[in-house]
Design a protein around this nucleic acid. Structure first.
Length: 414
DNA sequence: GAACCGTGGAA
DNA sequence: TTTCCAAGGTT
């Protein structure tokens, strides 16, 4: 790794030094932290694309021709793992197959389809943008990065991604993958400044093919996806697989690089109530709607939260971990049981008007928080409920007595 | 420019 | 159990 003289041979060298004299032509080298040379750019592109053709993962949004679908995939992929997106991508597009259908949908149904993906503002902005496009742009997604960026939820990265992938525009995407690859290849240390960002963008742009090579071949779009693919599958944040890297020979660091400091995580307990009731053949679950004012998951539905003081010493139905930003929540879900739980039921941290009963068969159409969705599925209240539902109902639903809610919770005809 | 916005799988 | 962090954008 250590190099003397601060440079690595780059490109072809034709001049030969005479014996006791200086070279006729100085060897062209690139020092740590410097930009790629032109000869390296061409080699980088070629090696990257050859690798990509062989190793590209098959992903649902690869090879789609509908810009709307590319748009949806790019919004979903923001700060979100591929595996999580795959779980939602098909269902979302089955529910909203076209830009127009999305624009006509109620926001709650869009959020319901987004449940579990997180960053719900993305779904709201996607929805808003679709409505704007239908209302103002004739229902056609803008065809270049400049105009795309005027839409809510589409910034620097996403504008470039859609423009290059859908329309072949020669503009570089810079996501976390691309940044990491370029910092390692050039050996420039990470700095969180505008200058640092500028360097990475310039490098990225220098590498993007200028034009489409031919009809049916999207050089820029494929190149951008290849850069991200390299970062995602080879140039990993920790333990990069340098042995499999197509541009290892062009890389300054061979995997070493600094990264941005991150904020410390903390752990907190959190408790929720599971309360079920049966009305004829219909089973309902009590949910609490988060205020429209809160910044986190505004207006979405969750299990009624309980204070830690009231659950002390009780045995939960379910324990799970749930991470929200920098906090690991160690979550417990409790069932209401009998009269002595009047205390627990009254302790629910929600106003009566926030509470609502939702038919378990219709949970998927409500904007549940990820935690509520996960808990309800884990408890077999949501989705698979044929087999174990009876046991759950006997244990839980029957125990919710009207007396427990006499403080205005309005359980009409339980 | 910094803070904020969700999630879950892997190590 | 705790840490890490992913195809970012908005305010």
């Amino acid at each position: 790794m250590a190099r003397v003289g601060g440079g690595r041979l780059a490109g072809m060298v034709t001049a030969v030094a005479k014996k006791t004299e200086k070279p006729l032509v100085r060897l062209r080298t690139r020092g740590a932290g410097e930009a790629l040379l032109l000869s390296e750019v061409l080699a980088f592109r070629r090696r990257l694309m050859q690798w990509y053709e062989e190793h590209a993962r098959v992903l649902p949004w690869r090879g789609v021709s509908d810009p709307y679908r590319t748009w949806v995939s790019e919004i979903m992929l923001q700060q979100t793992r591929v595996a999580a997106v795959i779980e939602h991508y098909h269902a979302f597009l089955a529910k909203f197959p076209t830009l127009v259908s999305l624009s006509l949908a109620p926001e709650a149904s869009v959020l319901a389809a987004w449940s579990g993906l997180g960053y719900y503002r993305r779904a709201r902005m996607l929805h808003k943008a679709a409505q704007f496009i239908v209302r103002e742009l004739g229902g056609v997604l803008p065809g270049n990065s400049i105009d795309l960026k005027t839409l809510p939820g589409i910034g620097e990265y996403t504008g470039a991604a859609i423009a290059s992938i859908s329309f072949g525009e020669s503009i570089a995407v810079v996501d976390g993958n691309v940044e990491r690859v370029l910092l390692r290849v050039t050996g420039r240390p990470y700095v969180s400044t505008a200058a640092g960002k500028k360097f990475v963008h310039e490098q990225a742009q220098a590498l993007v093919p200028k034009k489409k090579l031919s009809v049916g071949v999207n050089a820029a779009g494929d190149h951008n996806q290849a850069m991200m693919e390299l970062g995602a599958t080879v140039c990993l944040p920790k333990g990069p697989l340098c042995g499999a890297c197509p541009v290892y020979g062009l890389c300054e660091t061979k995997g070493e690089h600094g990264s941005a400091p991150r904020t410390m995580q903390r752990s907190l307990p959190a408790s929720y109530l599971l309360s079920l009731r049966k009305r004829g053949t219909v089973t309902e679950v009590l949910l609490s709607r988060r205020s429209a004012e809160v910044s986190l998951m505004a207006g979405m539905l969750e299990l009624p939260p309980l204070p830690e003081t009231v659950v002390a010493g009780r045995e939960p139905l379910l324990r799970l971990r749930h991470a929200i930003t920098n906090t690991n929540y160690y979550v417990q879900v409790f069932a209401a049981r009998g009269l002595k739980d009047k205390k627990m039921l009254q302790a629910v941290l929600a106003e009566p008007e926030q509470l609502e009963w939702v038919r378990t068969s219709r949970l998927a159409s409500h904007p549940l928080t990820g935690l509520a969705r996960k808990s309800l599925q884990r408890l077999d209240v949501m989705e698979v409920r044929k087999v174990r539902m009876e046991g759950i109902e006997r244990a839980l639903a029957v125990e919710v007595s009207p007396a427990a809610f006499e403080d205005g919770l309005e359980l009409d005809d339980y």
